[in-house]
C-alpha cells in the first residue's frame, strides 16, 4: 500500500535514497543509528521536507501533495497537541480543521477519547494531564483521522519503558481498528519485537527493504549487528 520509488532527499552534504514497498496493514519498525536518516525519511513521506522520486499511498501518487492530502497521519517527537485547546478540541481537529463539529462528529470524538481511556478528560488541556495521557489523546486523533498510513517519529520517546510499551500496544490497537499501515521509528529492538511485523533498517542514508522482524532480529546483517551491539 506504500510504494516508494527512487526517493531522494538532499540536506546539505547528507543524502538519503529509498526504494521499498510496504504491504497493507503491516506494522513496520524503522531502526538504525542516530543521524542515519530515519526522521528525514518519515518527514519526506509526510511531505514536510522536499524530496524527489515518487511516493504512492493506497495506489495514489502523493509525491507532490500537501501533508494533509496524502492519506497520512503523523505523530511527531513533540508538539502533537495544541496546548491552548482541550483534548476534545485537539481530537476534533482530526475531523474538521474548522472545529465546527456536528453532533455526529462530536459523538465520534467522544468515542475516540473513550477508546483510549480518556472519556473523562475531554475538557482538560494538555498541560493538565500526564505525558501518557497526552500520547493517548494524540492517538485518539489518529483514530478519528482514519488515514490509511500512520507515521510515528518516536512520539513516546519521553515516556518510561512500561508506559512506552503500553502506548505501542494502544497504537497497534488503533492501527488494527482503522486498518492502518504503520511506520514507526524506534531505537529499542524490544519495541520492534513487541509492536512490529517488519523492520526497515536505515544506515548512512541507505534505506533497506522491510524484512520480517523475527528473521532480522535472529540473524541481523553486520551493520545492524554493530548498531545493536550483539
Amino acid at each position: 500500500m506504500l510504494t516508494v520509488r527512487d526517493l531522494q532527499i538532499a540536506q546539505g552534504v547528507f543524502e538519503l535514497h529509498a526504494t521499498f514497498d510496504v504491504a497493507k496493514g503491516q506494522r513496520v519498525a524503522v531502526i538504525g543509528p542516530s543521524g542515519a536518516g530515519k526522521s528525514t525519511l518519515l518527514n519526506a513521506l509526510g511531505g514536510y521536507i522536499p524530496s524527489t522520486g515518487s511516493i504512492m499511498v493506497d495506489g495514489q501518487d502523493v509525491s507532490t501533495a500537501a501533508p494533509d492530502q496524502r492519506g497520512i497521519a503523523m505523530l511527531f517527537q513533540d508538539g502533537n497537541l495544541f496546548p491552548h485547546m482541550t483534548l476534545a478540541q485537539n481530537v476534533g481537529l482530526g475531523l474538521r480543521p474548522s472545529l465546527r463539529l456536528n453532533n455526529d462528529e462530536q459523538g465520534k470524538v467522544a468515542a475516540a477519547l473513550d477508546s483510549v481511556g480518556l472519556a473523562a478528560f475531554g475538557d482538560r488541556k494538555p498541560g493538565d494531564v500526564s505525558g501518557g495521557q497526552q500520547s493517548r489523546a494524540a492517538l485518539a486523533r489518529v483514530l478519528v483521522q482514519g488515514k490509511p498510513l500512520l507515521l510515528l517519529d518516536e512520539p513516546f520517546a519521553a515516556l518510561g519503558p512500561a508506559l512506552r510499551g503500553e502506548m505501542l500496544d494502544l497504537t497497534s490497537t488503533v492501527a488494527r481498528d482503522t486498518g492502518a499501515t504503520v511506520l514507526m521509528i524506534t531505537h529499542a529492538p524490544e519495541d520492534a519485537e513487541r509492536a512490529a511485523d517488519q523492520v526497515i533498517f536505515v544506515d548512512a542514508g541507505q534505506v533497506e527493504a522491510p524484512r520480517p522482524v523475527s528473521e532480522i532480529m535472529d540473524n541481523p546483517p553486520p551493520a545492524l549487528r554493530a548498531y545493536l551491539g550483539r
Binding site: G79, F82, M85, P97
Partner: peptide, 23 residues
C-alpha cells in the same frame, strides 16, 4: 513547534489563524 502539526491537519487560511496562530 506547530507548523508540521498544522500542515498534517490541513489547517490553513482563517482557521490556521483562529486555531493556531492567534492563540
Amino acid at each position: 513547534d506547530y507548523g508540521r502539526l498544522s500542515a498534517s491537519l490541513g489547517l490553513s487560511g482563517l482557521a490556521l489563524w483562529q486555531i493556531v496562530v492567534l492563540p
